[in-house]
Design a protein around this nucleic acid. Structure first.
Lengths: 192, 192
DNA sequence: AGACAGATGGACTAATTATGTCTAATTGTC
DNA sequence: GACAATTAGACATAATTAGTCCATCTGTCT
């Protein structure tokens, strides 16, 4: 990793909690510089604008989360528990921060405006990873999608859609995990 | 309670978390109005300025906390555990919110500038309440301050000073409770 | 119905704050 | 000393905010 990237990463690591805490608008460049322990002028040496910094932060957050998702899917347990863990990671890192307070909502809007492509790419990637996990499990004979008349990608799409739906219904409350577990039991029962 | 007071209380209950979360400066009147579910114009029907609203909020927070402190001191257990609970309440409600983030520090500064008298009065009240509890316990023969050559008010003053000292040393971390408990054991051993 | 009081959205000004740029000075490194 | 990175600070401009005002609306009381 170059010196420049290390510096940028350090800034983004400091900036992300500030954005999550205050939203995009209320997180000033001065706040972020203070959190990173550098001057405001230095911030502009690494990023040309607040929007560019935010976008880089979104990219970093998504990349880090997707690495964790991959690790979860490569971990131990049957395909259902691995998917459950992966989905929980995705929700905790990339959905929960945008639910609850007015600032969180504002942050979500900012992300839609400035980094929609990043979010959509990560979502597509998640579907692809889940589909691959399901496909592998089917090849290994551990699950059967025949009775559903669905391809792995279709099932993966439904899982991700369910995350959105449950989030929309339950917000960030504790019922999210509950509902998600119910959904996973449903899935397990259907295709085991 | 008058209609006017009920409205004001409702606003303050909504405003306090906003101040705690964002500090004084970053908590806008629009944020507070939104949190209270009223219009910004209505906010100015109850409070003439942001500073007046903040001061009223500080008064309310201190009053509520002192009621809890009194309840703790009137509760069950020996004088040490009651004092320990009372001190914990005071710390959780009136000290912890001002420690940690930069916003919390800014909030503390605002409170010093706009409601220093409220804070000092509450602190004096806490000392008086602790002194009364110690005095009652001594009258009942449960503790003895003779070996310390100190009056109840002196001991109460040291306890409150210890809160400040430990807070200053440990911030808002989990070590605060630990250190406070150690201090209480020390007190218990000395005057039981 | 009509009078009345409180609430609201919107417009408005003045003051404050934020963004982004620039420069001169400072620091640490080769 | 040369060099690159960092910094504080000043700066212009854009965006927010506090506080005020008003026309309008809503619910209540008579």
């Amino acid at each position: 990793m170059s010196e420049r990237d290390a510096k940028s990463d350090h800034i983004l690591d400091a900036a992300l909690p500030v954005f999550v805490r205050h939203g995009f608008r209320k997180a000033s460049m001065a706040d972020i510089a203070r959190a990173a322990g550098i001057s405001r002028a230095s911030l502009y040496l690494s990023f040309n604008s607040k929007e560019e910094l935010f976008r880089a932060g979104s990219i970093r957050a998504h990349a880090r989360t997707m690495r964790e998702v991959e690790a979860a899917l490569a971990g131990a347990g049957d395909v259902f528990s691995r998917i459950e863990t992966a989905v929980a990671v995705f929700q905790r890192e990339l959905i929960a921060p945008f639910v609850g307070s007015p600032d969180a909502t504002e942050l979500f809007d900012a992300n839609m405006a400035l980094a929609k492509d990043i979010m959509l790419a990560a979502r597509a990637r998640l579907i692809a990873l889940l589909a691959q996990a399901l496909s592998d499990a089917e090849t290994a004979g551990r699950i059967s999608l025949g009775s559903l008349q669905a391809r792995p990608a279709d099932v993966a799409g439904v899982i991700v859609a369910a995350i959105d739906g449950i989030k929309h219904a339950e917000g960030a409350g504790p019922k999210f995990a509950e509902d998600m577990q119910l959904f996973m039991r449903l899935l397990r029962t259907a295709i085991s």
